[in-house]
């Protein structure tokens, strides 16, 4: 069991209908002005959304260690490149550099001059729990605060999904700032042995965003025999 404080959060989910200042639900995510011009052109819509939720979550000018978590990352870019190769054309070096799983983390560290520890996870069936475990590990090793960014966008129709529950039909991006003490919402994370079927990372991420804005005190997410409970104390 692990106790921690949710200091702040911001989310971008253009498919949810909740009224909460921390939740952006419409429009395209703009590029934050603090991002240098020459870097702005490299930001995909998903990267823009990540930058938009991460910026208000952290005190201006403060660089925290970061954990990013995404099942599919910029998979649409990878698919475009595969199509280019199939057509016999050469692929763009820029597109390649922006398609890798830590591309958004790289852009983020350059834009904000963040040289703290940054970890990028690609959890599937294990859902969103590994990101919390990683971030809690950093806190217990001495970090005062950790920024967590969880994101996924819909998969292209090209990919067969059935019978897996791993797709949401709109992008979900969530930034959380957590600490072991201080002001915020006290949360508890613990493992349980319930056999559940809550879908993979993108589906769990949407459920967690709903949990943040809802009245419910507890949320259990997992698959097969591995499940985790988040409890608002």
């Amino acid at each position: 069991m692990s106790d921690f404080i949710l200091c702040n959060w911001n989310a971008w989910t253009p498919g949810l209908d909740f009224s909460d200042d921390r939740l952006m639900t419409s429009g395209n995510a703009a590029v934050p002005e603090c991002v240098p011009k020459m870097l702005q052109r490299r930001l995909t819509p998903l990267a823009r959304a990540v930058f938009n939720v991460a910026a208000p979550c952290v005190e201006s000018g403060k660089n925290l260690p970061v954990v990013l978590s995404s099942a599919h990352g910029e998979i649409c870019k990878s698919l475009d490149m595969l199509k280019t190769i199939q057509a016999g054309d050469e692929i763009s070096p820029t597109a390649f550099s922006l398609s890798v799983h830590n591309a958004i983390a790289g852009l983020f560290s350059i834009a904000y001059g963040n040289s703290q520890e940054i970890t990028v996870l690609a959890p599937g069936l294990e859902g969103i729990a590994p990101a919390f475990i990683e971030a809690l590990g950093m806190l217990n090793e001495g970090a005062n605060e950790v920024l967590m960014i969880l994101y996924d966008e819909p998969l292209a129709d090209f990919y067969p999904i059935a019978p897996f529950n791993l797709n949401v039909c709109f992008p979900c991006v969530l930034a959380l700032r957590i600490a072991l003490s201080g002001n915020g919402v006290p949360l508890q994370l613990y493992r349980n042995t319930q056999s559940r079927d809550d879908g993979e990372h993108p589906v769990q991420l949407l459920a967690f965003i709903k949990f943040l804005v809802a009245e419910e005190r507890s949320l259990c997410l997992g698959n097969q025999g591995h499940s985790w409970t988040w409890h608002k104390k």
Partner: peptide, 17 residues
């Protein structure tokens, strides 16, 4: 102009094409 190493690769490809 402020271009970087990825731009150099991209420009090399565009010139080749």
């Amino acid at each position: 102009l402020g271009l970087d190493s990825i731009d150099a690769l991209e420009l090399g490809l565009a010139i080749r094409k």
